[in-house]
C-alpha cells in the first residue's frame, strides 16, 4: 500500500511515522549536574542568548544544568534514519524520566536554526512567577489565539523516587487549532534542536545558601522526543542523501529536503502543504509531450478559477501555445495523428508559385491560392484554367 496515494492512484496527504528522535543519538550517559543558583533564571525569551552547545556541565558551577542535543545535526556521527532532516522535525511530545528526584524547575527550549537561537516551548515549576516570570498555565490552555510557552506544574515525583517530565505540543496550543490549517502551529512544532534546562534542586531545602554551596546531581534514564520528519504532508518516509543528511522521500510532484516546493515541470498550480482532506499535489504542466519546461503564471491561474497556471516553455515539434496545443505558423494539424504525436504538426508546403503565401490554415492545411489555382498546396490550376508562362498569374482562363 502506498500511504501517499489511494487505491485508485489519487494522491492523498501522507506523513512519516512517529519516531523517537532521541533514539540512537549520541549522549554522554548520565550527566552529573552541579547545583544551580536562582540567579539569571528569568532570562528566557526568544533567542535569549543561550549557548549553542551544552556547556561543560562539570565546570558549570554557577550555570543551570543544561541537557541539549540536536535533532537534525548533520555532523552527528550516527546515520540514524530516525533522526530529523536538516530542515526540522515536527515535535509531538518530549518526555524525560529521572532516576533521581526531579528538579522542581525545568525549562524546555527548542531551536529552529540548529542551535543559533532558542525559544521556549514550556516551563515546569511550582514557582512560575519567581523562576520564570510567568503565571501558571490556565487549565484551558493559552489565552491568545496562537500557541505559547506556558508554565506547567513541576515534574511529578514517582513512588520509586524518580520523576517524569512530560510535555506535549498540544499543551501549549489553544484548543481547536489545527496543524493542517495553522501556519503558526506548524511553526510552533518545528524544531531542529531541543534543550532541557534543569534548575533549583529539590532536596537541599529552600535556602539559597545551601544550593549555592553544596554540589548536587540529577540523573536521568530515558529521554524521548516524539515526532516526525517534517515533510509537509508529501512524504511517508525520510532517507539519507549522499551527504548523510536526512531528506524526505517526496511524492506528489514535490521536491526539496522537506518537500517544500514543486518539481520543475510540476508548476501548474502553487505549492501547498498537504492536509488530511486534500493532498494539494503539485500538478505537471499540460504540454502534450512537446515541452520539458514550464513556468507558473498567477494571473492565468486566477483567470482559470484557480485550476491551472502553467505555461509551457520552448514547445518542440513545431507546436506552439500555452499548452503546446496548436501548430506554429507554417504548419497545420494533421487530423490523422494525436495531438501528442511528434508529427502532429505538418509543414504547409505551399507551392512557391501557385500559393499567395507560405502560411496555411492551421486546421485544414489549406494554402492561400492565387486566382485560378486550386489544391491544398495550390499546385494545380482550377477547372476552366490552364497553366500560363507567368509566375505572377500561373493559371489563366482557358480561351
Amino acid at each position: 500500500a502506498d500511504p501517499c496515494h489511494d487505491e485508485g492512484g489519487a494522491p492523498r496527504g501522507c506523513v512519516p511515522g512517529l519516531v523517537n528522535a532521541a533514539l540512537g543519538r549520541e549522549g554522554a550517559g548520565v550527566q552529573h549536574v552541579r547545583a544551580a543558583g536562582h540567579a539569571g533564571l528569568r532570562r528566557f525569551g526568544p533567542a535569549a542568548g543561550t549557548p549553542r552547545r551544552p556547556p561543560d556541565l562539570r565546570r558549570g558551577h554557577h550555570k543551570p544544568g543544561v541537557l541539549a542535543f540536536g535533532l537534525a545535526d548533520a555532523s552527528a556521527p550516527q546515520r540514524d534514519p530516525h533522526s530529523a532532516p536538516r530542515q526540522g522535525f515536527e515535535l509531538v511530545f518530549v518526555s524525560l524520566r529521572f532516576c533521581s528526584a526531579p528538579p522542581t524547575s525545568v525549562a524546555l527550549l527548542k531551536s529552529q536554526d540548529h542551535g543559533r537561537s532558542w525559544t521556549p516551548l514550556g516551563f515546569f515549576s511550582s514557582r512560575c512567577g519567581l523562576d520564570y516570570g510567568r503565571v501558571p498555565a490556565p487549565a484551558d490552555g493559552p489565552a491568545g489565539l496562537g500557541p505559547e510557552a506556558l508554565c506547567f506544574p513541576e515534574p511529578q515525583a514517582q513512588p520509586d523516587g524518580g520523576g517524569l517530565l512530560a510535555f506535549s505540543v498540544q499543551d501549549g496550543s489553544p484548543p481547536g487549532l489545527d496543524l493542517d490549517s495553522s501556519p503558526v502551529l506548524q511553526d510552533w512544532v518545528t524544531a531542529t534542536d531541543i534543550q532541557v534546562v534543569l534548575t533549583r534542586p529539590t532536596m537541599l531545602g529552600d535556602t539559597r545558601d545551601a544550593m549555592a554551596m553544596v554540589p548536587y546531581s540529577y540523573s536521568a534514564t530515558e529521554l524521548q522526543v516524539g515526532g516526525r520528519c517534517k515533510c509537509n504532508g508529501h512524504a511517508a518516509r525520510c532517507l539519507l542523501d549522499s551527504q548523510g543528511h536526512m531528506i524526505c522521500d517526496c511524492r506528489h510532484g514535490t521536491e526539496g529536503p522537506d518537500c517544500g516546493r514543486c518539481k520543475p515541470f510540476y508548476c501548474d498550480r502553487p505549492w501547498q502543504r498537504a492536509t488530511a482532506r486534500e493532498a494539494h499535489a503539485c500538478l505537471a504542466c499540460s504540454c502534450n509531450g512537446h515541452a520539458r519546461r514550464c513556468r507558473f503564471n498567477m494571473e492565468l491561474y486566477r483567470l482559470s478559477g484557480r485550476r491551472s497556471g502553467g505555461v509551457c516553455l520552448n514547445c518542440r515539434h513545431n507546436t506552439a501555445g500555452r499548452h503546446c496545443h496548436y501548430c506554429q505558423e507554417g504548419f497545420y494539424r494533421d487530423p490523422g495523428r494525436a495531438l501528442s504525436d511528434r508529427r502532429a504538426c505538418r509543414a504547409c508546403d505551399c507551392h512557391p508559385v501557385g500559393a499567395a503565401g507560405k502560411t496555411c490554415n492551421q486546421t485544414t492545411g489549406q494554402c492561400p491560392c492565387k486566382d485560378g489555382v486550386t489544391g491544398l498546396t495550390c499546385n494545380r490550376c482550377a477547372p476552366g484554367f490552364q497553366q500560363s508562362r507567368s509566375p505572377v498569374a500561373p493559371c489563366v482562363k482557358t480561351p
Binding site: V353, G375, N379, R380, P383, Q387, S390, P391, P394
Partner: peptide
C-alpha cells in the same frame, strides 16, 4: 476533372528573376 500539377519548367522567369524560388 483532375488538373495536372503546375510545371515549373513552363514558367518564364525573365522578368521575375527575384521571385524565382530556389530549387
Amino acid at each position: 476533372e483532375v488538373m495536372p500539377t503546375l510545371d515549373m519548367a513552363l514558367f518564364d522567369w525573365t522578368d521575375y528573376e527575384d521571385l524565382k524560388p530556389e530549387v
